[in-house]
Design a protein around this nucleic acid. Structure first.
Lengths: 340, 340
DNA sequence: AGCGCTTGAACAATCGTTTGTCCAACGCTA
DNA sequence: TAGCGTTGGACAAACGATTGTTCAAGCGCT
């Protein structure tokens, strides 16, 4: 049952032709003409032997691996797992595979990328690292390997696929305003990062549109972790000012942390505090109360990034930056009109 | 800045030796002796040129790719993302990369595996698919590519790394019994699967140990999804019998679904119903109330599987089945003594 | 001095493809 | 019938590494 793997040579032998002819037929390279008679003979032989091309040999010859490298900061963050899934889908559609780069701790962050790129293991890189390492970009560029940033934008105008953070934030805050909230706080992301800044800007823009003072609205950086969200919510509650009636969290993860603090503080959601978060994922309906969120096309982000990268590799596309608008608002149980 | 990639030839030229000598020095293959003088000369040249071996060429010659393929049913399930992380870690330690196989929908499930294996893209496969496809195993074996099952056990005594489901289940149920519960229900997994069966067995064993009747205890299959957990909990509540005071969920995901139903039904947790789940993950403390869980070594599962696979590939290890005991019980807010 | 042995390194084949070049056979026209 | 353009396919050279084999130099020995 376990027959030896058959190569081009075996097919050629069975069909009674040269390997080069087999190669041309099988790769569909029709620069060179082949009589339809031998073509069918070759195709039959290939099928009979269940021929599978050796990716290594092909890659060596063509210096194309049909493989994309991807490095994500974390696997358990729904944003990234969704983006990976999208990249996987798009790559698969275009006959590419996905290689997950392990970040070799201890070495500098670029190590993993470099090894993949410079050992000819991948044709291009999907970069979703959170580390805003400027040197990484320089180094990446230095390798000459095409790459696309995912969910991250860098100064040097690299190729990237990102979310329209401002619009997403305005969608969320607009919902709160529409419910009648006037004192709205922001559990921000990382304010030195692209996403954090965009969401804060959207938050303020929405307030301004509603005739509220953007500058006096409380903003607490929460990062993108449960703990960060909890700590930020703590700080928010601790600050003496008249408490907000609603909070817009820059990420689903930090929102869940905030929810925990609200429970502990005996503040009912949404009665005592409305909560809306950016990004939707199954966990949004797992928490109590189920969170109202803005759905973002994270999977599409992965797809678009992979497609762009493959386009770049094939020399068909020109790159650039794609900004994806948010999908829609998913109203669940965590938002309601203010109590008073 | 972006210099041409240098190969063995360039190093040889710079060092003034033959490529074969360079190869021997750089791969540490000391069958053939090399004077320490030329050795250092070569090493310096390699460093100066920042030589990186071409993985394709090396793979073609040695028919080793230093790459492991991994197929998981879903990325967003914490069990799998954790296992992937573990596999990634272990693989990285041993200088292997991880290739994520996309399951090409439409083709039979084995398609992805086969392509990877038969095109010489990977040296071995980590199989974590939930699909209990018997044919897959046969086919996998047919390819002659070494593989290790993760979180899954199959009849043919394949190599596998699994959890000790029975012990884990007994740990969970023992906790409930210790709190004084007498009417305990089980939100089971897939009863036709390895994990579901083991957890059910552990559930019953724990009841028997406690002097309770295992056969009369309600068991509702819930699968491993939020919806499945919710539906099972519905059924449990709907069945007229004296309601249980506690429930043991076979998975964290289904437990969150159950929690939602309990909220909707106005049953307070843990006052009206204690809930304990198998598997721990961040989401356990995101839900309300935070779930008491049994921590399972899912990351270690990935590590062990990758290590075993690499051992198999290298011909050093002999495979077999590794059963990992649960870590410990994490008591949070979802369990308490029964109300009455 | 001649012989054999060890040592260190070059030579060359090979892995399985792809692809540029060459060549024989054929049919056509003059 | 000679000349010539097409056609269909074989030949052979890469790609960049690994590894078995060969070979020259140097040494000690008789």
């Amino acid at each position: 049952m376990r027959r030896r793997k058959s190569g081009l040579r075996d097919v050629a032998q069975l069909a009674g032709v040269d390997v080069s002819t087999v190669s041309r037929v099988l790769t569909g390279n029709l620069q060179q003409r082949v009589s339809s008679e031998t073509r069918t003979r070759i195709l039959e032989a290939a099928k009979a032997l269940d021929y599978q091309p050796n990716a290594l040999a092909r890659g060596l010859r063509t210096s194309r691996t049909a493989t994309l490298g991807i490095v994500v900061p974390q696997l358990d963050n729904p944003v990234f797992s969704s983006a990976i899934r999208g990249a996987e889908l798009a790559a698969g559609r275009l006959a590419y595979s996905l290689l997950i780069a392990h970040r070799d701790s201890g070495q500098r962050i670029g190590g993993a990328y470099r090894r993949l790129a410079e050992t000819h293991r991948v044709d291009g890189l999907l970069v979703a690292s959170l580390d805003s390492d400027r040197d990484l970009l320089v180094e990446l560029r230095g390798t000459g390997v095409p790459f696309v940033l995912m969910n991250r934008q860098a100064a040097g105008a690299a190729n990237a696929v990102v979310l329209d953070n401002e619009r997403a934030a305005r969608m969320a805050v607009g919902h709160l305003v529409g419910l009648g909230h006037r004192r709205i706080a922001h559990l921000a992301g990382r304010l030195e990062g692209y996403n954090g800044q965009g969401r804060l800007a959207g938050f303020r823009a929405a307030l301004a549109e509603a005739g509220l003072d953007p500058q006096s609205a409380p903003v607490e950086p929460a990062g993108y972790s449960v703990e960060g969200g909890a700590a930020a919510m703590q700080r928010l509650l601790a600050s003496g000012e008249p408490q907000p009636t609603a909070v817009f969290a820059a990420s689903l993860i930090s929102a869940t942390g905030a929810l925990g603090v609200l429970h502990a503080a005996g503040i009912a959601v949404p009665r005592g505090m409305s909560v809306v978060a950016l990004h939707d994922a199954p966990v949004a309906s797992m928490v109590y109360p189920a969170l109202t969120t803005v759905r973002t096309p994270t999977q599409e982000m992965g797809e678009k990034a992979a497609e762009m990268l493959i386009g770049l590799i094939r020399g068909e596309a020109s790159g650039g930056t794609i900004v994806l608008p948010p999908d829609d608002l998913v109203v669940r149980a965590s938002t309601a009109p203010p109590a008073d």
